[in-house]
Amino acid sequence: MALLETRDLSAFYGDFQALFGISMAFEAGDTVAVIGANGAGKSTLLKAICGLVGARPDAVVFDGRPIGGLRASEIMQLGIAMTPEGRKLFPSLTVEENLLIGADHRKGSGYWRLETVYELFPGLEARRTAAATALSGGQQQMVAIGRALMSNPRLLLCDEISLGLAPVVIRDIYAAMPAIRAQGTTVVIVEQDIVQALAVANKVYCLQEGRVTLSGAPAELSREAIHEAYFGH
């Protein structure tokens, strides 16, 4: 059984429909890339999974349990952590507090705790008492990922983690992926930057205007197919 499944998932902002019957399945241990142009519905998909956007109860099934429409806080406590687009660190909290708050409402049982997160992202520990927003963009992104890891999630959702960062910084951040996967965490990466995402993923979905236009293993998909699925005709 898949760890998380979306079954004919649709999502709305008021009268506007952003997702049209999305069906996906993420197995335990998968690293899934969800790619697509701006406005394709990628972020909405993550928000519907983590509870920030409403969904039919059985449209999102986590570990055999329907979770669509639950409150975001309840979904997080079940073991789905999210690194939101734009990082969204808490400016009033220090770097360390930003990490700690990730574990305040779910510790989980696992490898990730303050020490191991500092090991994963060296450089954060030296800035642990700094205000989170005083860090560089790349370090802020590391705090955001570390914050999500602190709850030892079974499923980690990463929304545009390379947005606005320099290529060398993006490489540093993606270098953490193997260590995260090594703990058995299922990772879903939403990116506009296809190259990085495809390099780490074992499964890819391409969205276009709220619908899945392509799915499969990255190795099996041709450049042309991806290009067509991404941009349409």
Binding site: Y13, G14, F16, A18, N38, G39, T44, K47, A72
Partner: peptide, 14 residues
């Protein structure tokens, strides 16, 4: 006719 807002619309929190 209805205009389509972009996906970037923030959803309303609970």
């Amino acid at each position: 006719p209805r205009a389509e807002p972009s996906e970037d619309l923030q959803p309303l929190p609970h």
